[in-house]
Design a protein around this nucleic acid. Structure first.
Lengths: 345, 345
DNA sequence: CTGAAAGCGCTTACAG
DNA sequence: CTGAAAGCGCTTACAG
């Protein structure tokens, strides 16, 4: 089965290869009747341009890279899906590149993607969006890149984020509104800047309500279900325990919930539990977990939009390349009014 | 920043481009001292071959496609990760292509990947591995492809599977061994051939033990947590209900478990629940769910190995391209001895 | 509005 | 063991 090339199309349509190229790429300056004739031949021959030839001559790859720490997480799945769908709409392809900053030589893999794949752009997921050494690699090679939920917004990087601080504050206000005073907070990993912003939002809400944070109830997890399980054991052991727990993500919140159930506590009557993400784990439990809906797929799609926008590519830094998407508080069954006597006062 | 090309390396090393090419690709017939000299220059210049130029001239893309129905599922994440890691080891790249057989025009997307990306091979995940029209596309274009867990094993397709029938039979034997006689079975979607093989294994074990299957307790789900939830309501409503439930995958088993908990049943004392997959959902509950470990990532990695193996590429059909990987029964807290009086007899 | 020429950076096929 | 030439299938830059 001989491959159909641009020359075959040109010959059959009685025009030059250049004209076929113009039609294929939707350029101007082609007479309508010629354009139609070419399109007809393209369809007849089922001609598909060779992406490599195009890339080689134009030095554009139509390839975007998604650089991500842990490609197996539910977060990664949502982000990837959002990016994939949008890439397809834009006739780009997506290559997922796992980056393990803990493994020596990671730079080489990244450089390799950039150099041999000639990536047209990169989406950099948290937490590695905050690694200056990684960002520098893209900057040096002049590869347009968008950071997802970064701690800072460098002028020559795009950025897509949500208001982690504000969302955490809303959640905390909601818990306080339910009468809770002894609210515990489960932090995420230290390198996760969004987790830090969430904690700040929590503390801001507590301060605004004039409630002192009990530091014994502020503990660090690693975003995993397992860490939620273990921290739950520690937090719920003694008689002196919080009436509500706010975890930095849903997987940990689910771990807390399971621990409470194991200890025969009633949720939400004995303990309210709130998460963050609106991950599948927040729905795969009983009661379902109150959480913050984070627009993960939308953020990834927006990142693609920024990267393929000629205005951004031609003109970095670009004012419109820093986006903030909306979140939402999702109230479910895991949170309820504080029923603790000493707090009714 | 001027890009370093093969000519630059050749000039600086005082050899021809062809010799540099030989060194880069690890071919024979290069004097050791020349090889070393070239390697030194490659390192000095940090030369990275342009993947597009290589692909264009060699008509190999070093790109593998993963074609998958639902790229957001936990199954997809595991498969993708297994494939990604192995691709990296083999210096291939992976492109994920969602395929929605329900949407008209899906063929065009697939043809496009094949034709414009010049895919070197394809991994086809279940359930679309059983769609003849899809397989035909790869066959026609002579793209080597490996099916994951297909219902049939065409001679000119590779295949990687596990023994779904045997594994389901083991699980059922285990439940029967615990004294259960009234065992319900939750089927997967009709188009999922592995789910059918699991049901057959279930029925074979029941028949071998001389136990009649109560067809009221055999119900169809769609692999989703939600369907497990709903089917649980139906199965556990009346007084006449099964003492054990075996679901075709873990997400549905988790749904069953949550329903049992909602209905104040004790698991496993009132009801044993078993799943299939060893997905995260089987561990994110209390009690944890007894299941079958399915080697998803290993299956995907094996598929990559088959695809990049020159012996397979040169010589399709190939006898060694049909693999069966080992599974394991994982006993956890959700299953226990049958405590129903009428069954003790 | 259209096209002929040159070139992108490699590898293939052939010599020597 | 090594290299000069041609070519992969497009696009760029330039003419007209």
């Amino acid at each position: 089965m001989k491959t159909v090339t641009i020359k075959d199309v040109a010959a059959r349509a009685g025009v030059s290869a250049k004209t076929v190229s113009r039609v294929i790429n939707g350029e101007d300056h082609v007479r309508p009747e010629i354009r139609e004739a070419v399109q007809r031949v393209v369809a007849e021959l089922d001609y598909r341009p060779n992406a490599f030839a195009r890339s080689l001559s134009s030095s554009r790859s139509y390839l975007l890279g998604l650089f991500i720490d842990d490609p197996v997480s539910g977060y990664a799945a949502d982000v990837q899906h959002g990016a994939l769908i949008r890439c397809r709409e834009r006739s780009y392809h997506l290559v997922v590149e796992p980056v393990d900053l803990g493994r020596p030589g990671w730079q080489d893999h990244v450089r390799d993607s950039i150099a041999s794949l000639r990536l047209d752009g990169a989406i950099i997921a948290p937490p590695i969006c905050d690694a200056p050494e990684l960002i520098a690699l893209f900057r040096q090679s002049a590869v347009p890149h968008v950071l997802m939920a970064p701690s800072t917004e460098p002028a020559d990087s795009g950025a897509v984020r949500m208001d982690d601080h504000g969302a955490a504050r809303e959640m905390t206000d909601y818990l306080i509104g339910l009468g809770h005073r002894h609210i515990g907070f489960v932090q995420g990993p230290e390198n996760h800047s969004a987790s830090i912003r969430r904690e700040e939002g929590f503390r801001a809400a507590m301060a605004a309500a004039g409630i002192a944070v009990d530091e014994r109830f502020v503990v660090r997890g690693d975003f995993s279900f397992r860490s939620g399980l273990e921290l739950g054991e520690a937090l719920l052991r003694g008689p002196d325990r919080p009436s509500a727990l706010f975890a930095c993500n849903d997987d940990m919140a689910l771990g807390l919930l399971i621990t409470a159930i194991k200890r025969d506590m009633q949720v939400p009557d004995d303990l309210s539990i709130a998460g963050f993400d609106d991950a599948a784990s927040s729905r795969a439990a009983w009661p379902q977990i109150t959480t913050i809906r984070q627009p993960k797929a939308e953020m990834a799609a927006a990142a693609v939009d920024i990267l393929v926008d000629p205005a951004f590519r031609k003109n970095i830094p670009h004012p419109d390349a820093h986006l903030m998407l909306a979140h939402a508080l999702v109230v479910r069954g895991s949170t309820g009014p504080c029923r603790r006597d000493d707090e009714q006062a």
